[in-house]
Design a protein around this nucleic acid. Structure first.
Length: 812
RNA sequence: GGCUGGGUGGCGGAAUGGCAGACGCACAGGUCUCAAAAACCUGUGAGGAUAACACCUCGUGAGGGUUCGACUCCCUCCCCAGCCACCA
């Protein structure tokens, strides 16, 4: 009989769907939540790389299901987003129509791959049933004071008159028309994620994520302990406060402030009176800096620029005057937007001092002992390096780190400074001046200000009477139906709706909660049904998504919408599948013409082959190049399995002892490997087992029964077919019991003991498993081994090492 | 520049202190065939040795260390990948 994957796979996919064998049971005691990061249904077809993670979680889910554990394993669509809107601008096709066409296509591909999702739980973030609750969530945050509106600069394309997302800015230019992007101040909604900074760091300790991803989260939050130091400005009432983690104050010779700093606006608007010539120069510098994009500020940034403000601060320790300069290498949103320049001990400060002829003082000697004047950048000893203070009065002779601590103590004592913690993370800007997103459920009234739409009126539906062309504001602003009869929820007078939509990250950062209870019309999800995700699989590099999702969980947890027993973190384990590269070892891309899709593989080889190959390629989480001969190898393996089951041979009642032990070892290994995401070695051990069974003259039916079930998570269609056609079973193999192993069969009767002389392999003895643990017998045997004896002749044995069941090592 | 991974045959990889190269790919030889494909069998780290075996030496990026024993642990260095980056 020929292995006709086409017929088999179609047949079983239909049957599984009809019988609903992957439905989640509502037994909440044993539930385990296995989740893929849900996809954006783009117009481009899915490629084999997307499937890597989905197949991994599918194998895990099928395995757990067979172990009798109730699994929640759903799939849905991150359906709002820019590509569909841009497509609509180009073609006039409504994003809703295009998106749903893509969803159907994606779903078809997932089903053709034999993935065992519970499609009853399918969600779509662009459906009103879903985004009603996105709006509800917004209102909860608003009520808690965690959502607020503030003026903030956005990327702005002057030609297209539109706001651009960061991803739409390439090299400081608009991706559509190549016009340089500028910053524009707009009133925008923010979520106060910064309130949760410390908990977002500490929560990482208790969860099973890759170290790399945890570090990325920590870096993004960027917690730093330092000190804010305030300086009087000579001759003026104003003060300037700098933030530093390394107060090398005996070496401070100037202060630099960001162009956006309030001192600069005060100079420009005349609040701080300075010489007109200086004022004009500062103004010119400010305008120049503002006209540059972030991109330009960074790329040009190696060359320091700046302008002297003519103001001076007074160094508390030395009473020397510190000139205050404006420069764009100081970033307004880091620390206080002002930095003290210590050119001897910071490379950027050194470059700045060198360029503008400011004094450079050495106050620390590094490991090289060089005490000379600092003239070269290479002599700069930065914070973090080993060093000892000099030229610093009470700090002299002190270790670098300790001296900094002492300085902070001293400054706090004197009231000149205060220790602070600075974070890199900013509040989350969620306003988008775009159409294809979730409307922000807020109403503005001239008298009452911003008020949320009453819960009973949710959802605020996306209007359909809009064109999609960008005009410098949300396309929704031009809808007439959207603002019709809107009244202030507080005073009842005519009012206006917010026309911006939410960042699609908002949808995709709470969707996993909705999967717990997707059909609930009364709540976003019932408290009884919400559980954290046990296994979350997808790109680990999605730093923001993970932070936002953790933030939402913590907020809802604090508000009492999540059972305290469920804990403070939403994703208990996170694994990231590695990229699958094209056959040319480059990232799969239309540009290189190296994209492989499931449709290229499934018709010819079948979904089972595709699944087995993808999992066998290498470790789950690393980058792997596609190799078509490898696919053929996987197909050959399944063909061998097929023939093994179809071969006629003498059925035996008892299985050989060595075969039996291989069998039980494999049951153990495959199970453990699946739980540890080591699918590649699980498959290789299955291959070994198949090789062993293929060479047996007679096979007992139990062995075949076990083998079929071990294969089921990897090659679900083939296993199902064999289960019914050969093994005569009635119910699906995927709801059968996972085989158990027996400890007593794990060890084979015969054990090979390795014999080493001076750590080198010189022979081996085969003994039974009882003898293998007996030191004296083994050593006696080892010495009589002809080859070993030869090596032992040349000297006296100094030491005999015996490792039970494994080896003997003679040291001579 | 910072952080985090990683470096093992012709290739993907296995082994986390105990026989390095499991499993697969590729390649070579063979069986079947008029022939080919498919399938099956055998071999396959490098070098030496042999009529053939036996056998020996070297070998996990480089160098050093710990250990009876190191791909695995420690130190120094080199290289590659990913993420972040004028973050004070």
């Amino acid at each position: 009989m020929i292995y006709d994957h086409k017929k088999i796979e179609k047949k079983w996919q239909k049957k599984w769907e009809k019988d609903g064998i992957y439905k989640t049971s509502e037994n909440k005691n044993k539930k385990r939540y296995v989740l893929d990061m849900f996809p954006y249904p783009s117009g481009a077809s899915m490629h084999v790389g997307h499937l890597e993670g989905y197949v991994g979680t599918d194998i895990l889910s099928r395995y757990l299901r067979m172990k009798g554990i109730d699994i929640l394993h759903p799939m849905g669509w991150d359906a709002f987003g820019l590509p569909a809107e841009n497509y609509a601008i180009k073609t006039g096709i409504h994003p809703d129509k295009e998106t749903h066409k893509n969803i159907l296509n994606f779903k078809k591909q997932l089903m053709a791959s034999g993935l065992s999702y519970d499609w009853d739980k399918e969600i779509d973030t662009s459906s009103p049933e879903f985004y009603k609750w996105t709006q509800w969530l917004f209102i909860k945050l608003f009520e808690k004071g965690l959502a607020y509106k503030k003026k903030s600069p956005v990327n702005w394309c002057p030609k297209d008159e539109t706001v651009l997302a960061n991803e739409q800015v390439e090299d400081g230019k608009c991706e559509r028309c190549d016009t340089p992007v500028i910053k524009k101040d707009l009133d925008q909604w923010f979520f106060k994620i910064t309130d949760y900074s410390d908990r977002l760091i500490s929560g990482l300790d208790g969860i099973d994520w890759l170290e790399e991803v945890k570090t990325q989260q920590k870096n993004w939050i960027g917690r730093k302990e330092g000190i804010n130091i305030s300086y009087e400005i000579d001759g003026y009432k104003d003060k300037v406060t700098v933030f530093t983690t390394a107060p090398v104050n005996f070496g401070a010779t100037f202060i630099v402030i960001a162009p956006e700093h309030e001192l600069i606006s005060k100079i420009i608007n005349g609040e701080i009176k300075v010489d007109d010539l200086i004022k004009n120069k500062v103004k010119k510098y400010y305008e120049m800096a503002m006209s540059k994009s972030d991109q330009e500020r960074i790329t040009e940034g190696k060359e320091k620029t700046g302008e002297f403000t003519c103001l001076y601060a007074i160094n508390h320790l030395t009473n020397e005057k510190l000139p205050i300069w404006v420069t764009d290498f100081v970033l307004a949103n880091v620390g206080t937007g002002a930095v003290q320049g210590c050119p001897g001990h910071d490379k950027r400060d050194f470059q700045f001092a060198k360029k503008f002829g400011l004094p450079i003082k050495r106050v620390v000697v590094g490991a090289d002992g060089d005490e000379s004047e600092i003239k070269l950048e290479s002599q700069v000893i930065e914070h973090g390096k080993k060093g000892t203070f000099i030229n610093s009065e009470f700090l002299n002779g002190m270790d670098f780190e300790e001296g900094l601590r002492k300085t902070m103590d001293y400054f706090e004592e004197k009231g000149w400074g205060k220790r602070v913690i600075s974070y890199h993370i900013r509040d989350w800007l969620i306003s988008r001046q775009r159409y294809w997103g979730c409307p922000i459920p807020m109403i503005y009234c001239d008298k009452c200000g911003w008020n949320p739409v009453p819960e009973s009126e949710l959802p605020v539906l996306l209007p359909t009477d809009v064109d999609f062309l960008p005009h410098g504001e949300s396309p929704i602003a031009r809808s007439t139906s959207f603002q019709k009869d809107v009244v202030c929820p507080s005073c009842g007078k005519p009012a206006k709706r917010e026309v911006d939509t939410m960042d699609t990250y908002v949808d995709s950062s709470w969707y996993f909660l909705r999967f717990c209870d997707p059909k609930n019309t009364k709540e976003f999800a019932s408290k009884e049904k919400i559980i954290p995700v046990n296994d979350y699989v997808g790109g680990g590099h999605v730093v923001q998504h993970l932070l936002f999702a953790r933030f939402f969980w913590k907020v809802l947890f604090d508000l009492g919408y999540i059972d305290k027993k469920m804990g403070d973190e939403p994703f208990l384990k996170l694994r990231a599948p590695g990229w699958i590269l094209g056959p040319d070892s480059r990232k799969m891309s239309k540009r290189w013409g190296n994209v492989i899709t499931p449709d290229d593989i499934i018709p010819k080889f079948g979904a089972d082959t595709l699944r087995v190959y993808e999992m066998f390629m290498g470790p789950f989480d690393i980058m792997k190049p596609w190799n078509i001969t490898g696919v053929e190898g996987a197909h050959r393996f399944l063909g061998r399995v097929w023939r093994l089951f179809h071969q006629t041979r003498n059925p035996s009642l008892i299985t050989d002892k060595p075969v039996l032990s291989k069998m039980h070892q494999t049951i153990k290994k495959v199970g453990e490997d699946i739980e540890n995401y080591k699918f590649n070695t699980a498959i290789s051990s299955l291959m070994e087992l198949v090789n062993v069974l293929s060479s047996c003259d007679s096979l007992n039916i139990d062995s075949l029964n076990i083998l079929a079930r071990l294969l089921a998570p990897f090659a679900p269609h083939l296993a199902e077919e064999i289960w019914h056609a050969i093994l005569g079973q009635k119910n699906s193999i995927h709801i059968s019991q996972w085989p158990t192993y027996d400890e007593k069969y794990l060890k084979s009767d015969e054990v090979t003991i390795v014999i080493q002389v001076n750590g080198k392999l010189r022979g081996q003895v085969v003994v039974d498993s009882v003898q293998a643990t007996d030191k004296e017998t083994i050593i006696k045997l080892a010495k009589t081994d002809e080859k070993v004896a030869k090596w032992l002749k040349s000297g006296k044995i100094k030491k005999e090492i015996f490792i039970s069941n494994k080896l003997v090592n003679f040291v001579i």
